[in-house]
Write a protein that binds this DNA or RNA. Sequence first.
DNA 1: ATCTTCTAGTGAATTAATTCACAAATAATA
DNA 2: TATTATTTGTGAATTAATTCACTAGAAGAT
Lengths: 207, 207
Amino acid sequence: MDLSDNTIERICKIFGYLHALEKKGVDFVSSKDLAKMVGATEYTIRKDISFLGGPGYTRKGYEVRSFKKELGQRFQLTEKRKACIIGLGRLGTALLDYENFQEDGFEIVAGFDCNVNKIERIRTSIDVFAVSRLAEIVDARNIELGIIAVPAESAQEIADQLAAAGVKGILNFSPVKISVPEGIVHVDMDFTNALRFIAARFVMMKK
Amino acid sequence: MDLSDNTIERICKIFGYLHALEKKGVDFVSSKDLAKMVGATEYTIRKDISFLGGPGYTRKGYEVRSFKKELGQRFQLTEKRKACIIGLGRLGTALLDYENFQEDGFEIVAGFDCNVNKIERIRTSIDVFAVSRLAEIVDARNIELGIIAVPAESAQEIADQLAAAGVKGILNFSPVKISVPEGIVHVDMDFTNALRFIAARFVMMKK
DNA sequence: ATCTTCTAGTGAATTAATTCACAAATAATA
DNA sequence: TATTATTTGTGAATTAATTCACTAGAAGAT
Ligand SMILES: NC(=O)c1ccc[n+]([C@@H]2O[C@H](COP(=O)([O-])OP(=O)(O)OC[C@H]3O[C@@H](n4cnc5c(N)ncnc54)[C@H](O)[C@@H]3O)[C@@H](O)[C@H]2O)c1
Ligand SMILES: NC(=O)c1ccc[n+]([C@@H]2O[C@H](COP(=O)([O-])OP(=O)(O)OC[C@H]3O[C@@H](n4cnc5c(N)ncnc54)[C@H](O)[C@@H]3O)[C@@H](O)[C@H]2O)c1
């Protein structure tokens, strides 16, 4: 059975929400509550969960801890995954020190930039390198994810290097669509496009 | 006729791509090319465009300039929209000075933070204010969009204030789902979730 | 003990989205 | 000029996604 992207996306959100509930000490959660959190209907949520064979309890819902654990195992969301950031400008450095990634199962283990002076000046607890050492470090440190925060014109080039270096996934913050070889998962996060979507959406609403 | 979110999203991407093509001096673009850029099939793209009644030319495709202009008008993507950022920490300050927004039709006209010392120390060409003045400034400057970059625990509170102040759209970078009154469009941009999606996606792929 | 209410699970129905298939148009080519 | 190759536009077909409608089980109320 392979799940649709929509389903995977909802499940990731559910996982995040379960994480929060667990910290709050909540024991059970209903499909209705989950639905509200991820922006879907309770039917859809139950269908999603049914693909996973999740164990729900009548009149109580899903047991937060065990459900989260199961999702974590199923999607390997629990074991820490190593990531690196390429491009240590304003956005890249903000991401470098973002502690939440750590808590959420991602560990930034290296930063890269082409500007060697910049590398020397950056104050952070994370190791930073010249981008020429990308392949070497990705390999040595078993890095699975690459986060692109370089200017648009270099984004594809970096994506190619990451792919060649053997990462399995890429999160791209530059405002161009990158293309990657089959077998590598990537997501383009274009802030401008999100703003456009919002703008277009509310223009549509008026009609 | 109201367009689906998927269609709106693709159209926003198309708009961005047309913008780039225009700068490059390209005159025509085919549905096939557009499809490649937005990650859809040419059929889907043509259907999307057909909802808009777009004028395509046989064997040439769509005329970049006029098509972009039409989309701009239809979705009011051309006239500059005013936005503000709340939370001037690492992410918020990176966004403050991101020049691309300007070029892409969005203008950051104010920043807000609750930390008054911080406000005094920030070096930027954009006006920054104490968050207590949010409603006042949003109103005075006709701000339509709010960008939330405060810690998770304050995000909903700020969303409420933005809604009360009368913004029409909210882009939320904090890792919680915010809820907003009917009639306000919002997008949650959760980086961690994007990473999770990538991770889950490539686990799925292996099976 | 019985009744009511709530919630999961799921096949069927519905709705939505995508893809196909092909006509029409026209640029390029021979 | 005739032919070929492309490319749009769109109704029909297909596929995918969501919602409905119902069963079953268990908690809580009476
Ligand atoms: N700053 C923002 O708020 C923001 C918002 C949305 C999108 N973005 C996008 O994120 C990316 C980074 O933005 P930024 O504002 O941090 O830019 P920036 O100019 O501050 O930083 C870019 C960094 O990348 C480095 N770099 C350039 N080419 C490189 C290469 N080939 N290899 C390695 N490093 C290289 C530069 O030395 C610099 O340190 C851009 O694509 C931008 O469009 C930024
Ligand atoms: N830094 C990142 O790379 C990153 C990545 C993903 C998500 N985020 C999210 O973006 C948000 C901001 O992250 P950050 O790293 O910039 O945090 P930060 O702590 O550096 O900055 C937060 C800012 O918000 C201000 N603030 C707090 N409460 C406020 C309130 N009620 N009203 C106005 N201002 C308030 C603080 O004074 C501070 O300046 C967080 O929700 C974070 O989870 C950040």
